[in-house]
Design a protein around this nucleic acid. Structure first.
Lengths: 167, 167
DNA sequence: ATTAGAACGCTAACATGTTAACGAGTCAAC
DNA sequence: GTTGACTCGTTAACATGTTAGCGTTCTAAT
């Protein structure tokens, strides 16, 4: 658990914290053959009901293009169902299946139990404190902040590869 | 900035917080053609001097296999140099080049400036508070915690694909 | 009725994350 | 001196993250 460089490097510190927390839950998900993202999607749909991809994306913090693949594989595995909306053919409704609902019923209690395990080891109010701090951080950093001015012709590390036009 | 599901979901909250913070720095790195990981590596080497891959990995929170690719591309771009240690031919010493040192000299002040911008917008002690909370979180969750018992034959979402032996 | 924009989900191309396993090098026991 | 366990960096195979751009559908202005 090396922690050099963490000061004046908030993103890295958040990454390390996330890893430290997630390490306690990863074994559960692996045991059920679920990826972390699949579990986020299942959990979101189980708690909030059927949703459209863009809502899932922002809820689960997964970008659209990633989500397309995640949902495709989950559909393949029979974990979600996708159908176009009658009213608007662009939009899609994603819902859980019987299989994923059953899976959720198995996994959720274990995740909750692990949570309580951590709470009792770390202290309930320490975790509550973390929630408060993070909530505030997100709210404050979400508001617009002035961006530093960037030089016009910077020394670039690597030229961005050009995209091949598809056809 | 949707924030449903965040409660009783600490990993997701940390992910959202990280994204909220990083959003303010990503434009700088993109401007210089750097990926987030490349910047972490350059910063680490600039601050701590030459290192071996396993040290870089734990410092930058990048897993070994990912780092192998990151370093290979960075070497290709002339951002790092790799050489085997004389004493132990398994080990490697990674160091910055003149090019990446120059790049660091350009980028670091901008990152610092953006940091100060955020501090003045959010409040210095709010950020200090975040550091304290995250440090404690990492320390406490890093310590061993009892793991919940897992069922023997779980309903698996997807069978893990078998690995093809290479030869 | 037609058409320019915008919304939505998606594909494309590449970089990275994750787990397993490999291959070369080291070192200690025999 | 061989052997066998171990370390280190890496490759392999697949899932996901990231940015650009495409194609269809919808909407609104003409």
């Amino acid at each position: 658990m090396a922690r050099v460089l963490s000061h004046r490097n908030l993103p890295l510190l958040l990454l390390q914290a996330r890893e430290a927390v997630l390490a306690h839950f990863r074994p559960i998900l692996n045991h059920f053959g679920l990826t972390e993202q699949q579990w986020r999607v299942i959990r979101a749909l189980a708690e909030a009901g059927p949703m459209e991809p863009n809502r899932i994306a922002e809820t689960c913090q997964i970008l659209g293009p990633s989500l397309a693949g995640v949902l495709a594989r989950m559909e393949e595995l029979g974990l979600v169902a996708r159908r176009r909306l009658e009213a608007d053919q662009r939009r899609v409704r994603v819902s859980l299946t019987a299989k994923s609902r059953a899976l959720f019923a198995h996994v959720a209690p274990l995740v909750e139990a692990q949570y309580r395990e951590l709470e009792s080891a770390v202290g309930k109010q320490a975790i509550a404190q973390a929630y408060r701090t993070l909530d505030r951080l997100i709210a404050q950093f979400g508001a617009p902040v002035a961006a530093v001015a960037l030089p016009k012709s910077p020394p670039r590390a690597g030229a961005r590869r050009r995209r091949a036009t598809r056809r």
